[in-house]
């Protein structure tokens, strides 16, 4: 029997007050990956901050840009003070560069101002930002801005910051699995999903030739200890 989401156990008013209700004002943005949408109850939340943690080269950028490419009808924005964004790679994933506002500002304070300013805009559908050392207060301000504008606000963050408290509605951890020569394997773990129990991790197999997701599957939750199977005979 499926376990009910926490939000459904609470009175509706209390669920909304605590921010636990996913059936809020905005519909979720489908990720374009059926299994991931199933795990996230429809997709990444609009009007909220989604944090994506991942080590360098382990797929966090892939997931962030893939989600950006799902926004079809609005302008998107990208802010990355380090300046490593590679437009041809984003275009290969389906990001419409003609509708992508790129902020090239290396000063963190100015970049953060731009991120906050853009987060308030309803005309922007989604913003992807890569900012180091974001404080709880900074993320909270972005969350409030996203709630007002209805944007999908994606923050790519270093896994070293996972332990920091955050106001983000959804926290994902992306890491790669080695061994696929004609494709690539990524695992997307949900660390926190507001209003729901943590869904199971999702395995994605990405086709080399097309960068399309050819397979996605739910993985079992990781267990704390080692399970030893014993056989008699």
């Amino acid at each position: 029997m499926a376990r009910p989401a926490i939000a459904q156990l609470l009175p509706p008013e209390l669920a909304r007050t605590l921010g636990a209700s996913r059936s809020g004002v905005y519909k979720a943005l489908p990720t374009g990956i059926e299994t991931l949408d199933l795990a996230l109850q429809g997709g990444v939340p609009r009007g909220a901050v989604t944090e994506i943690f991942g080590e360098f080269g382990q797929g966090a950028w892939w997931l962030g840009l893939h989600l950006l490419a799902q926004v079809k009808d609005k302008i998107c924005a990208l802010i990355e003070p380090a300046g490593t964004f590679f437009p041809p790679g984003a275009a290969a994933l389906g990001v419409d560069l003609g509708r992508l506002l790129v902020i090239r500002e290396s000063n963190r304070k100015q970049a953060l101002w731009a991120l906050e300013r853009i987060s308030h805009e309803k005309v922007v559908g989604a913003t992807l930002a890569v900012m180091e050392r974001m404080s709880e207060l900074e993320v909270r301000r972005l969350q409030l801005a996203a709630e007002a504008s209805g944007q999908v606000l994606l923050l790519l963050r270093n896994p070293r910051e996972i332990s920091r408290a955050s106001w983000g509605a959804l926290r994902l951890h992306v890491h790669a699995r080695p061994g696929q020569r004609n494709g690539r394997c990524l695992v997307v773990e949900t660390l926190r999903a507001r209003g729901a129990l943590a869904p199971r991790p999702v395995l994605l197999e990405i086709e080399h030739a097309t960068d399309a997701v050819r397979l996605s599957a739910l993985l079992p939750h990781a267990t704390g200890g080692t399970v030893t199977a014993r056989f008699a005979g």
Partner: peptide, 29 residues
């Protein structure tokens, strides 16, 4: 065209004013 909505134009103007015209752009292959 969403790029020409009044709200977006104001956003770009404000960003350009604060960050400079070179910091606010789009990429072209």
């Amino acid at each position: 065209e969403p790029a020409h909505e009044a709200g977006f134009i104001e956003l770009v103007d404000e960003l350009v004013g604060r960050l400079g015209v070179n910091a606010v752009s789009r990429a072209e292959l």
